[in-house]
Design a protein around this nucleic acid. Sequence first.
DNA 1: CTTGAGAAACTACACAGTAG
DNA 2: CTACTGTGTAGTTTCTCAAG
Length: 302
Amino acid sequence: MAETRLAAIDLNLLVALDALLVERNVTRAAARIGITQPAMSHALMRLRKLLGDPLFVRTPREMVPTARAEKLAIPLRRALSDIQEALRSDAAFDPSKAERTFTMSMGDFASLVILPDFAARLREVAPKVDLRVIAEEMPWSRALDDGTADLAIAVSVHGAPSNIRTRKLFSERFVCVMRRDHPAARRPLTLDRFVNLTHALIAPGGRAWGIVDDALAERGLRRRIGLTIPHFLVAPFVIASSDFVITLPERVARRFAAAVPLRIVPTPIAIPGFSMHLAWHERLQREPAYVWLRRTLVEVEV
DNA sequence: CTTGAGAAACTACACAGTAG
DNA sequence: CTACTGTGTAGTTTCTCAAG
């Protein structure tokens, strides 16, 4: 039967359980917390006895958590990260000596624009600090809430829960990008020429309709989208070696143009820009390490 | 044959009880 | 209070077994 008196529970078992939930593998979970595999196996046995549940079942690919274990995952992670913070908070943060990992949630766009300079800066001023970037798979506010992420970079922070703090990083506008020797690059890009070109679109959702199409539709215009791709990775190479034209955030365009021969021109139609924001949980508001992390991120000129 | 979970045997250590 | 000793627990190494 489940034991509810905390004094009767070895709380270290919860650290083991957390590692198992993250790794879903006894050997790796053991390595994660610095014990051997049999010790972790033993810890799992004690957890099973304590909670009266198998917790994990072996499958060819991984140790799959039972419903009971799954249910514990998020509150456990949150509790452990709170404890970790509580223990850490008094010590002032010295980036040049700190050995720790920060986890940040950000998408393709933010990674491309922010990471190159930020990662370089980190190596310089905090050589022993590791950075773990996770994709925006879950709602980022939840990742901040349960401690999966220390910081999120997001486009829209409207309607964020009240326990989430935000700060604007930068505003972004759209530009048109084509290969450097594209025939259309010889003359100014008028709206008329723009709609007669064949366009490429980065559409994570796969929908062949973007913000440009909204702006065109307002004027009763349409363009042909000849290529839709789900992420930024291949875009510069496709554009550099074809006649497709693409409309991109300016900072992305500049990154691409630094890697392959491209021409960047203004959009011939007004397209509303957007802003990128930093978001964090209020419990990290005054923690020296996170104050430093946020300041360092803001200081990186992108 | 390889990999990984779990069992067995052994070891180290903390704690409690007891003697001086 | 200190020193010694017995007990229990959790760790390690080594092994076994099952599955791919």
